[in-house]
Design a protein around this nucleic acid. Structure first.
Length: 289
DNA sequence: TGCCAGGTCATGG
DNA sequence: CCATGACATGGC
């Protein structure tokens, strides 16, 4: 499917596109000719940071407006103002300095939920592989310009809900197959309203997500943070846990409860962004992985 | 070859 | 509450 392209250029400040797209919050962006290709919703997109203050975008025509991209990339966030709310502690400030321009995205809730259900005890490379297989096999084709690989949308909840568990399992997701299927069915049936999550209190939104099998606190926080639903969502995975322990509790291991209380209070109104800086910092500083 | 991966769940102190 | 093991699969 070949189609004409519409282009636009956005002025940005403090935006590191590469770091943002590779920071483990989204799993489909692919480096391509000095830029990044991917799909947002039902649309093929190519992004390229051409200067520290500029991001160029191309998308399959027609493009009536670019609000969907502004929204996804959160281009209207005032990063400096958000960083200014952070506590002035040395570890966090070091992470902010090292990862200048790292941003949060506002992704589609279903794709984000499904992807993070697949993420448990998987390396990011493998999560990407499973997601890719799902898209190739069950996603609808999206139009892209000649010369680009064929791209597909992330499969809808309805589509996945109709599949047998074994078919999902054959994408290499192992024991996560029944979890993904249950989530797809809950969303497709309207039993879980993802669109409502931003309007609920954080604790309620977390509880809703955690009614799904295979969705615990970590994945629930990820979904609420990476869809732009809750700024104080604070996923604690193995990396963030190690970072928090080393940086803030060097003496003695904090209890789970103590740690939860700390992450819920110490980092302020943009705690989730702080989490992303800590995560990306430890993952890029420390050799390998 | 074996260890381990952006976890969660069930079980037993 | 806290600790432990199982759960599939594959990169390194």
């Amino acid at each position: 499917m070949s189609v004409a392209v519409c282009a636009e250029s956005f002025r940005v400040a403090d935006y590191d596109l590469a770091a943002t797209l590779q920071s483990g919050q989204a799993f489909r962006w692919t480096p391509q000719g000095g830029g990044w290709e991917g799909v947002i919703g039902q649309r093929w997109v190519r992004l390229r940071q051409t200067a520290s203050d500029r991001i160029d975008a191309e998308a399959a025509a027609p493009v009536a407006h670019w609000n969907w991209l502004r929204g996804y990339l959160r281009l209207d966030d005032n990063l400096a103002a958000m960083l200014a709310t952070f506590p002035p502690d040395p570890p966090l400030q070091a992470a902010c300095t090292a990862c200048r321009g790292l941003r949060l995205l506002a992704q589609d809730p279903w794709e984000c939920l499904a992807s993070f259900i697949l993420s448990s005890t998987k390396q990011i490379v493998q999560i990407r592989q499973i997601v890719e297989r799902l898209c190739v096999r069950f996603g609808t084709a999206v139009e892209s310009p000649a010369g680009t690989p064929s791209w597909r949308a992330f499969p809808s909840a309805e589509r996945l809900a109709a599949l047998p568990e074994e078919t999902l399992r054959s994408c290499g997701m192992g024991f996560r197959a029944p979890y993904l299927l249950a989530a797809a069915r809950a969303v497709a049936a309207g039993q879980l309203d993802l669109a409502a999550l931003p309007h609920l209190p954080l604790s309620t939104a977390l509880a809703r997500l955690q009614t799904l099998p295979g969705v615990g606190p970590k994945i629930a926080h990820c979904v609420l943070l990476f869809t732009g639903a809750h700024e104080t969502a604070f996923p604690v995975d193995v990396w963030v846990f190690r970072a928090l322990r080393q940086l803030y509790f060097p003496r003695r291991q904090p209890s789970a409860a103590r740690l939860r209380q700390f992450t819920a209070t110490h980092f302020g109104p943009h705690a989730g962004l702080a989490q992303q800086y800590l995560f990306h910092h430890v993952r890029t500083q420390i050799p390998r992985s």
